[in-house]
Design a protein around this nucleic acid. Structure first.
Lengths: 208, 208
DNA sequence: AAACGCATCAATCAAAAGGTTGAACTCGGG
DNA sequence: CCCGAGTTCAACCTTTTGATTGATGCGTTT
């Protein structure tokens, strides 16, 4: 019997996961959490094998799903965390996997795939949505053009149309630092302006 | 007895809506659609009172929820359409409401609110999520602020990160004209920078 | 016809942002 | 232990932007 904790801020999604999973005879939903903090609390108690974790916990929540995942997996004997989210971007998947998630599924997955992934997670095996697996492999193959984490962060804000000043405030940096990052980004991407960098990075999938 | 059609591409969400709504004694889920096209087909048949419509139907779908809503409500004797979505932006809500949706709810709504909204829709009354209602009223108070075609065109290029000079070349204008348009845009949108204008216009759905 | 909004352009000026160069510090690996 | 990569910053110069003022022609509306 695999004991599940469902962590999602949407009541409808919780009900949907419960409805889909509790018809599996070997599954038992033992708890639900509507906030990331509550999920961490509940996952700390014994009697949970797999946590189904959403990444987005709506505004008014200090903690996101990736942070909660990190907090849960940090403990010894922690349950496995299976991320189940709507979003499928590098910006979301990588932090979640780095935080120790055992798997990463999309909410549009068919119920059967969900159940398989839960069983895989319970057994300690990984379960990735095909699109996620694709991008991970592609990332492995493409060794080049890697922007550093900070550079990616800066470029993301550039893509959102922020000025260097706004970026510096957002990241608690000086404008000089932001500009410096941009110079490095330009050389790495072989471009010479912010808009060209954004286009290039979008094309390569470095930023959503 | 209120007969419901659930249209959503996520199996989990469909299951969740069904689980939440079918425990209401006066509701009956008579059909489900995983695509917008299928939803239009099913809504055309008699025996449906309210359609719960998602807006996003995943890539690989030609029709979105707003278009499906328009197609459904265009017919005489059509069922009411209640939009239930994750997103809460002007760019999403306005087209949906213009397409004839009777209500607009967010998926994080508590089950009770959902049920109330369905009953309201079945009775022909409107049901809007509080945040949506707020923004609609605010829009009513604010006198329109529609941009001219040319202004929208310019702002679209600004949103793409082009400089005034690049825009002037693209549109065969002088930089002076571009600046002039921008000044008008700023006053109409009550902002004072290009990035703020882009944000504002995106929020209002004036540009993609 | 007059008034109005729209689109077009010119010129000027201060402020902001962008881009370049150079340099310090940290940290992990050879 | 030194090297390179990453992060941080300053000073400097150029480009862009935004504000302002003003002008022309062209449709619509009044």
């Amino acid at each position: 019997m695999i004991r599940l904790l469902i962590a999602d801020d949407h009541p409808v999604v919780r009900a949907g996961l419960r409805a889909v999973l509790e018809c599996e005879p070997d599954f038992a939903i033992v708890a639900e959490a509507a906030t990331a903090e509550r999920a961490v609390e509940l996952a700390a108690e014994p009697g949970v094998d797999v946590v189904l974790m959403d990444l987005q916990f709506g505004p008014g929540s200090a903690m996101n799903g990736a942070q909660a995942t990190a907090a849960i997996t940090a403990r010894a004997g922690a349950p496995r965390v299976l991320v189940v989210t709507t979003y499928d971007t590098d910006a979301d998947t990588l932090p979640a996997l780095e935080a120790g998630a055992t798997g990463y599924l999309l909410k549009d997955a068919p119920p059967e795939e969900l159940a398989q992934a839960v069983r895989a997670a319970a057994a300690g095996r990984s379960a990735l949505a095909p699109s996620v697996a694709d991008r991970l492999l592609e990332r492995m193959r493409a060794p080049a053009a890697a922007l550093s984490a900070r550079e990616t962060e800066v470029l993301g804000l550039v893509a959102d149309g922020l000025t260097n000043q706004q970026i510096s405030q957002r990241l608690h940096l000086s404008q000089a630092t932001v500009k410096s990052h941009l110079v490095h980004i330009y050389t790495k991407l072989a471009v010479d302006s912010r808009t060209a960098a954004v286009r290039e990075a979008r094309g390569r999938g470095l930023i959503r």
